[in-house]
Nucleic acid binder design. Structure first.
Lengths: 138, 138
DNA sequence: TAATTAATTTATAATGATTCTAAAGTAGTG
DNA sequence: CACTACTTTAGAATCATTATAAATTAATTA
């Protein structure tokens, strides 16, 4: 199965028709080796330059939100200034480099077991997310 | 020293003149036993009802941001939809109740030691923040 | 205390991100 | 090919936040 076919599958599974705009977005997001952290604004800039297709902002927002709902993308909360998305949808954690505003993935296995000693009656833990803020060590 | 005097001190330390609007904001934020998690919108609503003073949104934004910069308030990143502030400025963590959107403090000592097994060359860890998402266990 | 100066408050405008809308275009189906 | 439903798009609408500039108030000085 070609990459393009995989993208078409992803789109169909998300209830979206495979259009050239959406396929261009898929290429940008999923045709890469490493995980990709991005903002909508990032995506828009890259697509404006790289892609042959002219893709409107509304289409980008739409597609990203559907992928997020479907679980093909994760949204990361680092700070209130920007909204980041992540192509790594496995359970994992993040470094945030406060000197450069760069996000780096931290594998689940790179974080030791976390013990939560407080229990909230009637609630159960759904997920534990760790954000490690780093800065230049000089 | 009365509460009001403490508020005046806080304001002065932040480089702000003690006006009645700012003192009303201080009362709301700091005259309480438990930590307070809020959005600007929350604050505005409470002030609109509770306080004798008419306080404009611009004043609220201004004051909150100065307090944040001074370290009298912390901003918490839970999700991209809302921007929350916290009157607890010690190092600590949070539960986020996804059923109710409620934030609950988790004391530093309620979280076991966290081992980060990955090192980023040239960077040092500034802080480690844990967000525990919970839901009804029905 | 009155006068002066500088900071503050406020309503409103400006901005920026995101969402909505409705007209024009395109994919899927028979 | 024709039809229908889904998409795309530009631009408008909305919402949170920030900026602005005139009116008000606090602090300072005489």
């Amino acid at each position: 199965m070609s990459n393009k076919d995989i993208f078409i599958e992803k789109l169909k599974a998300s209830g979206l028709r495979p259009t050239k705009q959406r396929i261009a977005i898929c290429k940008l997001l999923f045709q890469r080796k490493d995980t990709f952290h991005f903002t909508i604004n990032n995506l828009n800039n890259i697509l404006k330059n790289s892609s042959v297709e002219k893709i409107s902002l509304a289409t980008i927002y739409n597609t990203i939100h559907v992928f997020k709902k479907k679980g093909y993308l994760k949204e990361i909360s680092i700070n209130s200034y920007k909204s980041y998305f992540d192509t790594n949808v496995t359970h994992h954690h993040h470094f945030f480099n406060e000197s450069t505003n760069e996000i780096i993935d931290l594998k689940d296995s790179d974080v030791g077991k976390i013990k939560i000693k407080k229990v909230i009656p009637g609630k159960k833990i759904k997920t534990i997310e760790v954000l490690v803020k780093i800065e230049n060590s000089n």
